[in-house]
Write a protein that binds this DNA or RNA. Structure first.
Lengths: 105, 105
DNA sequence: GGTTAATGCAACCCTGTAGTTGCAGTAACT
DNA sequence: AGTTACTGCAACTACAGGGTTGCATTAACC
């Protein structure tokens, strides 16, 4: 997972309302309309958020009857987490190396 | 690390320019002016980004001579990664349980 | 087939923010 | 002390995006 792939994921996660949606979906799949019943925003706003989340690969949709039901993808979070951890570790490693050189060891 | 604490971190990470800054800092500490020499944006824009990153706990600043040098904090990335992983795993766990119930097992 | 309840689309408002330019302040260095 | 190089602050532009309302569309269901 490259860094440029990660940006839309983080952008998607950088919004309170989308976290509310994700949290709601974390308790069971739901449609945009169903979510609109629980959250203090309109269905259309939620639909937009779901599009962003889907684009980022954080949710997927399944047609069931006449409704579009959304499911959260925890695996994508875990992958993102691994990428983050690797990047952070790499920075620390490189900066530690620089510090060592600077101290003349 | 609570979910609401995470939002500003993700919002900070959801921008290409800030990743460029973080990547540059990952190769060694630098001031806003130094970064402006390497990136295609003005020093003032970089200063704003650094403020956002600092607010999110992703960088820290140290005065050295007459310049303000910034250092990337890989540890914050690692902590964030751990939180993400926990949350994703929790969603998967709960949804798997729901699925099991739905299947009548 | 008609009704109902869901989604899809479009236009619009408004705030936040990435970016700029310009200038003032401040602290090294000679 | 004067010069220089950095940071800090303020005002402004422009665009993205979160939110809304309104209407069209489509597909279950009786």
């Amino acid at each position: 997972m490259t860094a440029s792939t990660l940006v839309p994921v983080f952008a998607a996660l950088g919004d309170e309302t989308r976290w509310s949606i994700l949290a709601a979906l974390g308790e069971g799949d739901a449609s945009a309309s169903a979510l609109a019943g629980r959250l203090p925003v309109t269905r259309q706003a939620i639909a937009k958020h779901l599009a962003v989340l889907q684009e980022a690969g954080l949710v997927e949709s399944v047609r069931v009857g006449r409704e579009l039901r959304y499911r959260v993808l925890g695996s994508q979070l875990s992958e993102t987490a691994r990428s983050l951890d690797r990047i952070g570790a790499e920075w620390d490693r490189r900066l530690a190396a620089i510090k060592r050189i600077a101290e003349g060891l």
